[in-house]
Write a protein that binds this DNA or RNA. Structure first.
Length: 424
RNA sequence: GUGGCUGUAGCUCAAUGGCAGAGCAUCGCACUGUGGAUGCGAGGGUUGUGGGUUCGACCCCCAUCAGCCACCCCA
């Protein structure tokens, strides 16, 4: 390990076992996405910085992106998110695409943040969006997809819950307590801080930000009002739809959900780890203007994004990551000695022709060592082709799982193994 | 970007400023045609890195890198 060059801070290394987990996660996202009729797409991994400058909030670009100048002197960045690339792609082919369109993606993103548990500088993110509809049905669908995914991962509503709110509802309510339009952003920010501070400190913070004592109390009542959604016919309708879809158990109204990204204009939602000290694992919402903002005609959309890092942390916490053995149906063809290597290679090739997963041992070693290798790798069958077998055109097959062994004619090897596999 | 804690064998961790260790793992042998078990043995370290203090530094000081935690922010 001397003179080892370290990996770049915050980047990920996927050893085979973790790669299996990533693929397993991907498979479930794909299944849920496609079951609702979503199509897979992807955007560039590098974008011009201008794409994000306007709409995602300044911090995301200024502080949290991997920005550099390319050889042509252009300021570019490793993509910190996908929604704006999506909006541009849609705007570019707005007249040929069929709406409403439903697209999903899973790929790498980069943010220049301080790494800690559940947060790295390089991460994978599931993005899923429905564009071209303004209805409560569309918004409800995305929440339902989120719930279906959690259910599929065997996560219960007691473990992760989806909290829903609506920005316009909040704006209306804030206007009612005489908060001026210009202050909305600042107030949204203090609402966001509510969970992190004791009530007294939070109230002090509100006053610091210019709220009158009376307004602070009104705001406190507002964000602790779990019935507030009843003031919104829109949210009422969303919850009704979710009930019919059978996913209500995962969904809660929460007036404290606002979300940081500036482009959300309607319903917003986040999935939270209920058991933990509260961290969002997924977030999304409705946006009215995104496509227009990148040069298209106005088109509304709704979508969410989920990072793999925090979600994997939670899956581990709840013991939901299966131990996958990719060699459970594989076989190892051993080599007995130098004279039998060709016979083993020949046997291995013929078994692969029969669509079996066949590993060979690449050098002549003691059988003990080769058996141990199979055991450590989780390979189920070990084949021995020694002088005795070759003389009688036999092959010995040991089933490491059931600790049984047979010697059979070589021509029956594939069918015998297939029979054992079918019998489990 | 700010503050705090931690870096010793592949892993988990010991070691008053005075000889760098244990368990697990690895490798070898017992076992010359058979994995998991047992026994015996072996290898493995510039104590994250670079300076400083000291007769002497894993230990104290400074810097730096990395991990974790709390902010900030967010997925």
């Amino acid at each position: 390990m001397k003179n080892k060059i370290q990996s770049v801070r915050g980047t990920r290394e996927f050893y085979p076992q973790q790669m299996l987990t990533r693929r397993w996660l991907y498979k479930h996202m794909e299944e849920v996405s496609t079951s609702f009729g979503y199509e897979e797409y992807d955007g560039p991994f590098i974008e011009k910085i201008d794409l994000y400058a306007a709409k995602t909030g300044e911090e995301l670009v200024k502080e949290q992106s991997f920005v550099f100048t390319d050889r042509g002197g252009e300021l570019v960045t490793l993509r910190p998110e996908l929604t704006l690339s999506l909006a541009r792609m849609v705007a570019a082919r707005q007249n040929e695409l069929v709406f409403p369109l439903r697209w999903w993606s899973f790929g790498p993103f980069w943010r220049y943040e301080k790494p800690q548990k559940g947060r790295t500088r390089e991460f994978f993110q599931w993005n899923i969006d429905l564009i071209g509809s303004d209805s409560a049905e569309a918004d409800a669908e995305l929440v339902a997809i989120c719930a279906c995914f959690l259910k599929k991962m065997d996560i219960t509503p007691e473990q992760i819950a989806i909290k829903v709110n609506h920005r316009k509802l909040m704006e209306e309510q804030l206007v009612k307590i005489n908060i001026q339009k210009e202050y909305l952003k600042a107030v949204f920010h203090v609402i966001d801080r509510y969970d992190k501070l004791p009530t007294d400190s939070w109230k002090a913070l509100c006053q610091e930000r210019g709220l009158a004592t009376e307004q602070v109390d009104q705001l406190w009542r507002l964000i602790n009002n779990h019935e507030l959604w009843k003031e919104s016919p829109y949210l009422t309708s969303v919850f009704e739809i979710l009930k019919v879809m059978g996913v209500s158990a995962y969904v809660k109204y929460d007036a404290r959900i606002i979300r940081g990204l500036d482009y959300y204009t309607g319903m917003v939602f986040e999935a939270w780890d209920v058991g933990g000290d509260g961290r969002a694992v997924l977030g999304g919402g409705h946006y009215d203007n995104l496509v227009a903002d990148v040069g298209g005609s106005p088109l509304p959309g709704v979508g969410f994004a989920m990072g793999d890092v925090m979600f994997t942390v939670l899956l581990e916490k709840y013991g939901k990551i299966p131990k996958i053995n990719q060699f459970e149906n594989a076989l190892l063809v051993t080599v007995f000695n130098q004279d039998t290597t060709l016979a083993s290679a020949d046997m291995a090739a013929r078994l692969r022709d029969e669509d079996l997963k066949v590993v060979t041992f690449p050098s002549v070693e003691k059988l003990q060592k080769q058996f141990k290798y199979a055991d450590r790798m989780g390979i189920r069958f070990v084949l021995v082709l020694g002088p005795d077998e070759i003389k009688d055109r036999l092959v010995t097959i040991k089933d490491l799982k059931h600790h049984t062994q047979v010697s059979i004619p070589q021509k029956d090897a594939a069918s015998t193994i297939k029979r054992l596999l079918a019998a489990q």
